[in-house]
Nucleic acid binder design. Sequence first.
DNA 1: GATGAAAATGACAGCGCTGTCAATTACACC
DNA 2: GGTGTAATTGACAGCGCTGTCATTTTCATC
Lengths: 335, 335
Amino acid sequence: MKSTITDVAKQAGVSMKTVSRVLNNEPNVAKKTRDRVLAVAKELRYTPNLAARGLASSKSYLLALLYDNPSPNYIANIQKGAIDACRDSGYHLVIEPLNMNAANRGDALELRLERLPVDGIILTPPLCDDVDLLDILTRLKIPYVPVAPSREPEDVTSVKMDDVQASFEMTEYMIRNGHKRLGFIKGHPEHSASTLRYLGFVKAVEAAGLEVDLDAVVDGDFSFKSGVVAAERLLSAEQRPTAIFASNDDMAAAVVSVASRLGISVPGELSVGGFDDTPLAQILYPQLTTIKQPIYEMGHMAASLLIKPPKAEERLPSYCLDHKLIIRDSTQKSE
Amino acid sequence: MKSTITDVAKQAGVSMKTVSRVLNNEPNVAKKTRDRVLAVAKELRYTPNLAARGLASSKSYLLALLYDNPSPNYIANIQKGAIDACRDSGYHLVIEPLNMNAANRGDALELRLERLPVDGIILTPPLCDDVDLLDILTRLKIPYVPVAPSREPEDVTSVKMDDVQASFEMTEYMIRNGHKRLGFIKGHPEHSASTLRYLGFVKAVEAAGLEVDLDAVVDGDFSFKSGVVAAERLLSAEQRPTAIFASNDDMAAAVVSVASRLGISVPGELSVGGFDDTPLAQILYPQLTTIKQPIYEMGHMAASLLIKPPKAEERLPSYCLDHKLIIRDSTQKSE
DNA sequence: GATGAAAATGACAGCGCTGTCAATTACACC
DNA sequence: GGTGTAATTGACAGCGCTGTCATTTTCATC
C-alpha cells in the first residue's frame, strides 16, 4: 500500500541508495537520474518513513520547544515560526512544557531531557537563562538555541531582539509628536527586558535634549494590576504627563482603563504606548500603539539554526531580529 | 555510551525480547524477572530509541494536534493537557497549524497529512467540523479525536463540554442572586457554541418562571468591539438590566468597559458574567465571573483516547467533561 | 584511442527494536 | 513420577532507510 524507497528504486530503475541520495539532496547524482527519481516518487506518492530514516541516520528529524512561560501568546508565536521553518525541511516540532520548580530539577530533569528524542532544542525565556538546564543540555550534547536570553552563553548561537532600540523608537515617536512630559512604567525588576526598555526610554529622552523626570517614572511588574497603581499615581500628579509609555501591553491597558475612569480621553488628552503587541492591544478601545516583537521570526530563525547549523567560521554569536513600532489609536500629537 | 536493550538484556541475564516485554508492560513476565530488568534498566539509565521502536512496531509514538484557531490560549491549554497525557505513555506531541484556505485544501492537504508520521490526531474547532479534512483522515485511516465538534461524527469518539448546562448554571446563579432583568449578548452566529449558550440561558430563565425579555437579548460575534455595541444598547435602555451575561469574556470585558465609561458601577449596579475564563477575566478589574471550560481536560482526554483506545464494546460516542462556574468580583446580589 | 581522475552508481550491512513462533519451565492433578 | 496445560522465555528475522566502500561510467587530456 504505502510505497517505500525500494518501490521507487525499482520503478525508476536505479538502486535504493541513489533514490536516497536524491531525496536527501546529496550531491553526485546526474540531473537526468534525479529528475526521473523525483518524477517516480511523486507518481507513487512516496513519503519517507521518519522512523526508518531516523534509525539509520541516528537523527530524529524532531525539534523540541521547551518553555516555562505563562504567556500563551508568546509561545504560540514562537511555535508557529519554528513549525514553519521545520515544515520545509521535513522536520516536526514537539512541545515540552517544563515546570522548573525544585522537584523537577536535578536528575529528574536530566532524565526527562534524555528521553527527548530530538535533534535540537529551542529555549524560550526564562528557561534560556537557567544554568542547570543549560548545563545538562551541554553535558547531553543536545544542540540548543536560546531565544532572547539575558546573557548570551558562549559557543552557542542565540536569537534575540533589540529591546533598547525598540524602546528608543517608541519614545522618540512620542517626542516627535510633541510630547514633552513623558511618563514611564517599568516592568518586573527581575526581568532583564525591563532594564533594557527603560534604558531605551532614557536614551531617547536625552537624545532629544530633554530631561528624564524621575517623578514620572514609576515601578510596575508587567501585570495589569501594577499598571493600575502606576497609572493612578501618574495621572493624579499635578502636572500629569501627556504621554505614558508602559513597558508592556497589559500595563498600557491599565493606563487606558484608569484614564477612562478619570475621564481623561485617550488619545485626546493622553497618549499611551505599550510593548509586545499582544491580542489585548487590538481588543482594546482605542487600539494600542505598541511594539511588535519579532516573536514569530525568532522562532523561525531558532529552528532554522538547529536544522542547518552555520559552519563554525560563519557562526554569529547571535542573530538580532527586527521589531516594529505599530502605530494605532492610543497615541497622537500633543496639542 | 547510550545503552540499548541488548545491554540491559545482557546485564540482566535475559533475552532482548524479555526486556522488550517488560518495558512495554506486556503480560506473561514473571514478577521476579520484571523487577530485575527494571532495576538494571534504571541502573543503566536506559531510554528506548523511539525510531527503532517505531520502525519495528510501525507506530510512531507521536500524536499531532491540528489547529486553525486564532485563540492561543485555547490551543495552549489543549496542548498542555495532551502533552501531560502523552508524557506518561512515552508519547510526544507534535503541533501542526493548518491554514484551511482554499489553496491548502484538496491534494495539498492530503499530502501534508500523509507526511505526518503520527499515530493519531487531535482536532480542535473549527477543524473538527471540516468535512474535507475528516474525509481525508478517514481515507488515510488515521485515528482522530474531535474536540468540541458541532456535530458528532459517527464511529468516532469525541470529547466536549456541555455548553447548554454551563450557560444554564451562570444564568441560574444570577437569578438566584435576585436578578430579574437579565441581558444576554449572543456569540458569533456561525459558531455552534453561540446557539447552545443562548439555549442554556433561555432554559434557566424559563425554569425560574421568568420570561426572556427579547429586547435584552442582543447580537454579538465574540469580539470586544461587538460587545461594546451590544453593551451600549443594553445599558442605554430605559429599564436597563441589572445583570448581563455575555457569551464570552471578550464581550463581557466590553460590557465592563462601557459600564465604567457610563459611570455604572460593576458589580454594584450591574453584574456581568462571561464565558471561557480567558486570562483577560483575571486581568480585568473587577475580575470576571465566568465559566471555565475544561480545555486542559479535553486535551488530556483526547490524547488518552488516542493512546489507549477503548475497546469497541466500551466505546462511548463522546466524553463530556465538567466545566466550572467561577465566581469572581463582577457579579453580586441584586439590591 | 589510451590514460587517469572525477563523477555517478550500487551492494551490503546494520541502526535498535518488536512480532512471530518455537522452546522451555512451572505447576496442578492424578 | 507422569501427564497436560498454561505461563514464561528466547531465537530470529526484518521493519525502511542510510553509511561505507567498492564498482562502473563519464569525460577531459594527451
